[in-house]
Design a binder for these strands. Structure first.
Lengths: 184, 184
DNA sequence: GTCTATACCTTGATAGAC
DNA sequence: GTCTATCAAGGTATAGAC
């Protein structure tokens, strides 16, 4: 169960890091949560130090998200937005850690951004907007795409970090209204 | 210069807390940044401990934001949105700290939420939406308000935390496009 | 009110027995 | 690979001189 422990350490670390931040998570707490004796250096048999663990955790999460099939472009924009919200949900622990570490480890921030860009959450669906019959969208498609992306991340972050959905609106209702605003 | 030092401590603490988090900011660093000798306990002449300082800083920021006249409701929705973005900017250090401390100090989170709600960022401007000629808005005004609020916080948070504006769109362009999407 | 000095605790990290 | 034991470093907090 050698690498079993290693995986378990990464599992609990992901959770603890996202919950309390890297700086506020002592190695001893990680050991305890992983079923090792707290204070024993057993952790160091698996990772050089906490930074190495952080890097490994981030790598693993990114790989996991990347492997996930990017959803075969649902037909409707609303459907696309819904699946994007789901995608963001899977990125959540990573985004949380990123927000904590953005100053101390900017590489991590860029890495996550890259993943999001790859997935197309940022601007990929903007193509669908090009043919929208809505006047405001035709007037400035780029700004409209920015509104779309902002609304998505805002809805997601509000839900995740402030503990409640904006105005209590559920994801379906949100996605469908956003889509209708953009495409008429 | 007794209370002068106290104020200075709060000033630098707000900055350091927002930059690196409370847990990652030792009292010694606060002392140093405030012009005191690092490691001297001079800090403790002004605050009982770091938690007390955090509470005081949050209180002071909230009071400051509250005192600020809530902008005399600009005529256009776009104008309103722009001033709301500015308001969010002033809340920024507080929101950063909140995101870090939300698990350790949920009261702080609720406190800030209350301020935002009071200001009307959340749903106050929804009234303007009631008369909008846009079909999607009339169909579900509450969801439209949620989209508006999400777009605002999303634009703000993306700018602040990911270091760049969504699609490089500036605030004016963003606000005006969002307003046009909502009101036609 | 700020300093030097210090006691204490927590955390990071290693050594060596099992 | 995990444990007990251990230490150095860093951080909290207090005491007492100035």
């Amino acid at each position: 169960m050698a690498s079993g422990t290693r995986e378990r350490i990464m599992d609990v670390a992901l959770q603890l890091f996202a919950e309390r931040g890297v700086a506020a998570t002592p190695v001893t707490a990680i050991e305890a949560a992983a079923g090792l004796s707290a204070g024993s250096g057993s952790f160091y048999r698996h990772f050089k130090d906490k930074q190495a663990l952080l890097a490994a955790v981030v790598e693993r999460e990114i790989a996991l998200v990347r492997k996930d099939p990017a959803v075969p472009a649902a037909g409707t924009l609303a459907g696309q937005l819904l699946s994007d919200l789901d995608f963001l949900g899977r990125l959540r622990p990573l985004m949380t850690i990123l927000m904590w570490e953005r100053n101390r480890a900017p590489e991590v921030a860029e890495h996550v951004q890259q993943v999001m860009a790859d997935r197309g959450v940022e601007l990929g669906t903007a193509e669908e907007l090009a043919v929208a019959p809505v006047e405001a969208v035709r007037a400035d498609p780029q700004a409209a795409a920015a509104v779309m992306m902002s609304a998505m991340t805002g809805y997601f972050l509000t839900t995740e970090y402030f503990g409640r959905r904006p105005a209590g609106i559920d994801p379906q209702r949100f996605a469908s209204t956003l889509a209708r605003l953009l495409t008429g």
